[in-house]
Simulated assay, not measured.
Amino acid sequence: MNENTFHGTVGREIRINHSQRTGNAVVNFSIAINSRRRDQASGQWVDRPTVWKDVVVFGLLAANVYDTLATGMHVVVTGEEVDDSFTKESREPGGEDTVIRRTKIEAREVAVSLRFQTATVEKVQRNREQSTEQRSTSSTAPQPVG
């Protein structure tokens, strides 16, 4: 397994779905990764272009992410970058299909970064029979960080 760690800001509303096959929670969101470098010639800091990464989270971690994170929060995501490419079929008869190349992070761990914010941690009590669907539908939506 090839894991990477990404530091960024949640930049899109967090969406939760449930697998039709297993009923497990699946959460999708994006993080904006901003960085800067020091230009040696001018001595000034130069902002680099924002890099966006799509993140997918599964199972109990997904339910916790959905209940905890909100747009604007600084996060640390550790996971494997996986291929999420697809082929877009041509609308023209006999036309060439287009392969859309993209990747996403399949998260193994997601944490709130304490670099620019504080957090209160609460241990979640679950019994084995409680489904993530029951948990996510009874929770309140996270509030944006401003």
Rank of each mutant, 00 (worst) to 15 (best):
F86A: 11
R48S: 08
S85M: 03
E129Q: 08
A70R: 01
Q125C: 11
T132Y: 00
S85A: 03
V56I: 14
T71I: 08
E122R: 12
V82D: 07
I105W: 05
F58W: 15
T50H: 08
T78G: 05
G95A: 01
E81A: 12
K88R: 14
R108P: 03
R37L: 15
R38S: 04
N34I: 05
R37K: 15
S139K: 12
G43M: 04
E96L: 09
T68E: 01
V75I: 14
V57R: 07
M73Q: 07
T140V: 10
T50S: 06
L60K: 12
T87M: 13
T137D: 09
F116M: 10
S35F: 10
Q117N: 00
T132M: 01
G79D: 06
R128S: 11
Q117V: 00
T87S: 13
K104T: 10
R128C: 06
V110F: 00
R115I: 11
Q44G: 05
D83Q: 14
A32C: 05
W52Q: 04
T98K: 13
K88N: 12
S139M: 11
E122H: 14
T132G: 02
R37Q: 15
W52R: 03
T137C: 06
D47V: 02
D84K: 13
P93S: 04
L61Q: 01
I100Y: 04
M73K: 12
R135E: 02
I31F: 09
V99E: 09
R128N: 10
L61H: 03
S136W: 10
E80W: 07
G43I: 06
T87V: 15
L60F: 13
E81K: 05
T68P: 02
R37H: 15
D47G: 01
P49D: 11
A119P: 02
T87R: 13
F86D: 14
E122M: 04
T98Y: 06
V124H: 05
Q117L: 00
V112L: 09
G59H: 05
I100M: 02
R36N: 10
S90W: 01
D47I: 00
E106N: 14
F58G: 02
G72D: 05
T71P: 00
F58L: 10
R126A: 03
R101K: 15
N127D: 15
R37I: 15
V55I: 15
T71C: 01
N127V: 15
E81Q: 14
T103E: 10
A62N: 00
L60N: 15
R126N: 06
E122F: 12
W45Q: 12
D97K: 13
F86T: 07
S35L: 08
E109S: 12
T103L: 02
V57H: 11
D54L: 13
V99K: 09
A141S: 10
A119M: 02
H74D: 04
G94L: 00
S136G: 13
T140S: 15
V56L: 09
S35I: 10
T120D: 12
E106F: 10
V56Q: 14
E81I: 14
V56E: 10
I33D: 10
G95T: 01
V51W: 13
D67I: 05
F86E: 11
A119W: 03
D54V: 08
A119G: 01
I105F: 05
H74P: 00
G72W: 04
Y66L: 12
T137N: 13
